[in-house]
């Protein structure tokens, strides 16, 4: 019983094995890819392992506090920022191995030529509550 965050990157992850940019796939390949993603989330709901997820717009803004009575300072987006997150999903699973299995399943989404994309996904454990029995 542990929650994990699955992160999909626009940029910053190592290149996928099937490394063809999406704008060079056929429209049917794109549809098949998106359908796989939807079915994947539905499957996780059915197994009782889905907590939440969203896709993120690629363009964001950096914001910081700038002192009492002053408006927040904004900056960016920075084209050179290494890491750009495309979407997230949180799963609640019985083991780390199960989390790996599910991440691999998502990474197998079909891409160019109908072959699995084999993209790299980032898997991060969520902090849990501290256990009651600790000594």
């Amino acid at each position: 019983m542990a929650k994990y965050l699955l992160l999909k990157h626009y940029r910053g992850a190592p290149n996928p094995v099937n490394d063809v940019p999406m704008d060079q796939w056929t429209p049917e390949e794109i549809s098949a890819h998106l359908r796989y993603m939807r079915d994947y989330a539905a499957r996780l709901e059915a197994t009782g392992e889905y907590v939440g997820g969203d896709a993120l717009a690629p363009e964001g803004t950096w914001v910081r506090y700038d002192g009492e009575g002053r408006p927040p300072v904004t900056d960016g987006p920075f084209a050179e920022t290494k890491d750009l997150i495309a979407g997230w999903m949180i799963i609640d699973v019985d083991s780390y191995d199960r989390a790996l299995e599910l991440a691999a399943e998502l990474s197998a989404a079909p891409a160019a030529g109908g072959k699995p994309l084999q993209e790299w996904l980032e898997l991060r454990p969520l902090m849990s509550a501290p256990p009651t029995v600790s000594e």
């Binding site: 059915a46 889905y50 609640d92």
Partner: peptide
């Protein structure tokens, strides 16, 4: 109690 959506828990229980 386990911080998951109700439909997810419903599925877990029915499975």
């Amino acid at each position: 109690a386990y911080l998951v959506p109700e439909p997810t828990m419903a599925q877990r229980i029915s499975r």
